Amino acid sequence: MISIENAGNCTIFRVTGNVTANEIIMQAVPYMTGGQTDTSLWDFTRAGRVNISTAELKGLAGSLKQVSEDGRVRKVALVGSKTINIGLGKLFAAFAQMAGLPYTYKVFRNLPSAMDWLADNPDYSSVQQTGR
């Protein structure tokens, strides 16, 4: 399951339990075609398993490129968990860069580091530490 909340100018996608590529795309596409915030965080710290193949990961980046129209550079933090290998996030970040997505992706092992990185820019100063 993926829940969405806003914290200032940051959209937080909290993933719990098992999740598929289709569930991720069903949340990401409406967000990207609607009013986006300057930063976003995908929190996989409570995820049980991400059921996604390498081909689906590459397809996800391609699908997001098709709906990314404004060309504005935004920061996206991906936070793994003990059971979700951060290598999966790094692989997605590489596919996103190859697809030409206008976002800066960074992968983290914990939420505080990700929130610090998102807030580390005057343009993104509205991002605050959020409770869980």
Rank of each mutant, 00 (worst) to 15 (best):
M1H: 09
I2Y: 03
I2C: 12
I4W: 11
G8C: 08
C10D: 00
T11L: 00
T11A: 05
T11P: 00
I12D: 04
R14L: 12
V15W: 03
V15F: 09
V15E: 03
V15R: 05
T16D: 09
N18C: 11
V19G: 10
A21N: 08
N22H: 14
E23L: 10
I24T: 03
I25A: 10
V29M: 10
P30Y: 03
Y31G: 00
Y31S: 01
T33K: 13
Q36W: 02
S40Y: 06
L41N: 06
W42K: 02
W42S: 09
D43M: 10
F44V: 03
R46Q: 15
A47N: 03
G48W: 02
R49A: 13
I52C: 15
T54K: 15
L57C: 14
L60A: 13
A61D: 04
G62A: 14
K65P: 05
K65Q: 15
V67L: 07
S68G: 09
D70T: 07
V73W: 06
R74T: 01
R74N: 03
K75N: 11
G80W: 01
G80C: 13
G80I: 03
S81C: 02
S81G: 09
T83L: 08
T83N: 14
I84S: 00
N85G: 05
I86R: 13
G87E: 04
G87T: 05
L91P: 00
A94F: 10
A94C: 06
A96R: 03
A99T: 09
A99V: 11
G100H: 10
G100W: 04
G100T: 06
G100F: 10
L101Y: 04
P102R: 12
P102L: 07
P102K: 09
P102M: 10
T104L: 09
Y105H: 11
K106H: 10
K106Y: 09
K106I: 05
N110H: 12
N110T: 14
N110E: 15
L111E: 13
S113Q: 14
M115P: 01
D116A: 13
W117L: 03
W117Y: 08
D120K: 12
D123N: 13
S125D: 07
S125N: 11
V127Q: 06
V127G: 03
Q128N: 09
Q129A: 15
T130Q: 11
R132D: 14
